[in-house]
């Protein structure tokens, strides 16, 4: 049986959108897939050693369930993002959902390959020393080398 492959393009850097790439990648790896995640634009934030600035905002996110209805004017107030992030993290913990750090570690343990978009690193002037290891730095063409042969390819 040939090994199945999956590629994910992770483009978002918020707490809610950080979960799908890591959940899908760790699960696919557990099922025996060879997995790569290509992190580009805001997705690069998910490769930082320190993930404390990966947050969730209720602003412009009308689908986010809130304990009480919150007018947009209130959501704009300073500190609302931190509060929403804290509440979301508590909720995740209460439901036994792994932290992003834990899921990311599980991916690395399972040999999921992390590829960072070099263009984004240059564009946002990211300091590579702030990123975890191992991460490979490459461009779109390198990604297609792997993605072109996958069974599943997702854009998140």
């Amino acid at each position: 049986m040939t090994t199945k492959k999956m590629a994910i393009i992770a483009t978002k850097g918020t707490l809610d959108m950080a979960y799908p790439p890591f959940i899908l990648a760790s699960t696919a790896a557990a099922l025996g897939y060879d997995v790569q995640i290509f992190f580009t634009f805001y997705g690069l934030q998910l490769l930082r050693k320190d993930l404390s600035n990966v947050m969730i905002s209720p602003l412009a996110n009308p689908a986010m369930p809130m304990p009480i209805p919150m007018p947009v004017m209130v959501q704009m107030l300073p500190g609302m993002e931190s509060m929403a992030t804290m509440m979301m993290k508590q909720k995740l913990k209460k439901h036994g959902v792994a932290s992003l750090e834990e899921l990311r570690d599980l991916c690395l343990e399972a040999d999921v390959k992390f590829v960072a978009c070099q263009l984004t690193v240059d564009l946002f002037e990211f300091d590579k020393s702030e990123f975890i290891e191992p991460v490979e730095y490459a461009g779109a063409a390198a990604f297609f080398g792997f993605a072109g042969e996958t069974d599943i390819c997702l854009f998140v």
Partner: peptide, 14 residues
């Protein structure tokens, strides 16, 4: 017990 998706599967594999 107490773990949510995908931990039961990922850790079963481990």
């Amino acid at each position: 017990s107490g773990m949510s998706c995908p931990l039961p599967i990922v850790k079963t594999k481990k």
